[in-house]
């Protein structure tokens, strides 16, 4: 069983649009949406949810006001500025914990002299196993304002792998998140191939370089696709040069075409929406990617 992840560094270069078309083109796969922060793949694949799992991650501190003696020791030790002393008429009246700033380290819980702080388990998201007309989709939703999306990403990857093994599918196609920190690291570690979607813009090129280095750091092989390559041919040339210098295969170029947005608005993967130049380019990209795998 092989795993491919679609990443980009910069957001909005076309990861999900390409992943959805890959899902439509492949017939032996499980699909995973690892952008648990702002997942969009379900908008194109229209999943029917079969199973839902709670995602619990870490704990958060709560103060029992009846026990609290307002000594302020917790405020002193908290490095995340999550605890505030509420002062009324020049005296400390009570303590409050901001659940958004609390990282759940529990230092306040350990230092509290009267055991007034409780660490409660934190429900931070949900994971779904769904059926789509293209096969099984494993996806998730991190609650807004939460942290630890790396762990939820790992959970999505584990379930996707499990479903592929169970149903004897030989491919997992993963839609990755933007950026270069914990969610992306969790999305790429141990995959067979990373397809980096870039654009001929200085921003996307800058981010391509950073995300390529992250993949390299974690020993993941990368290939590149240049989306909207005809928007700036000079920059496209520069990307090709960069790839040559770094020994990165270019798996395809996709033209700029507003039909891609039209397909998205209609909620259909481009390759199913229309048969034209751009859908053929995506087909070629898919075939080449599978060959390079």
């Amino acid at each position: 069983m092989k795993q491919i992840v679609v990443i980009s560094g910069k957001g909005g270069t076309g990861k999900t649009i390409i992943t959805a078309s890959f899902a439509a083109l492949s017939n032996a796969k499980v699909i995973a949406d690892c952008d648990v922060d702002a997942p969009d793949l379900h908008l194109l694949l229209k999943p029917k949810v079969k199973q839902t799992f709670d995602f619990k991650s870490g704990k958060k501190a709560f103060i029992n006001e009846e026990e609290c003696i307002n000594c302020g020791e917790c405020v002193e030790v908290c490095r995340f500025e999550a605890i505030d002393e509420i002062i009324e008429n020049d005296v400390i009246n009570r303590m409050i914990i901001d659940p958004i700033s609390c990282e759940g380290c529990g230092v306040c819980f350990h230092v509290c002299p009267v055991n007034a702080i409780e660490m409660r388990e934190n429900l931070t998201g949900k994971l779904f196993i769904s059926e789509t007309k293209y096969g099984t989709l494993v996806h998730a939703k991190l609650n807004v304002a939460e942290e630890n999306s790396g762990k939820l990403v790992s959970m999505v990857r584990n379930y996707a792998k499990h479903m592929a093994e169970k149903d004897k599918k030989n491919l997992v196609i993963i839609d990755g998140p933007p950026g270069i920190s914990c969610p992306i690291i969790a999305s790429i570690t141990g995959v067979d191939l990373a397809l980096i979607v870039t654009e001929p813009t200085l921003s996307a090129m800058h981010d391509l370089d950073r995300v390529y280095k992250v993949a390299k750091h974690f020993k993941v092989r990368s290939i590149v696709c240049i989306n909207k390559y005809d928007l700036n041919l000079k920059n496209t040339k520069k990307i090709k040069k960069y790839c040559k210098e770094n020994n990165i295969d270019i798996a395809g170029n996709i033209s700029f075409d507003l039909i891609v947005t039209e397909a998205l608005v209609n909620g259909i993967p481009v390759v199913e929406y229309i048969d034209n130049k751009v859908s053929n380019e995506i087909r070629d990209l898919y075939n080449k990617t599978i060959n390079l795998l």
Binding site: A38, A145, E146, P178, T261, L264
Partner: peptide, 27 residues
Amino acid sequence: PPGTSCPVIEAVKGSDFCILVTEPTPF
């Protein structure tokens, strides 16, 4: 940064106003 989790909160926290930029698509 994009998204809705901890880095976004850290960046937005303390602002007097937040501009949300979007595009007119389902995503």
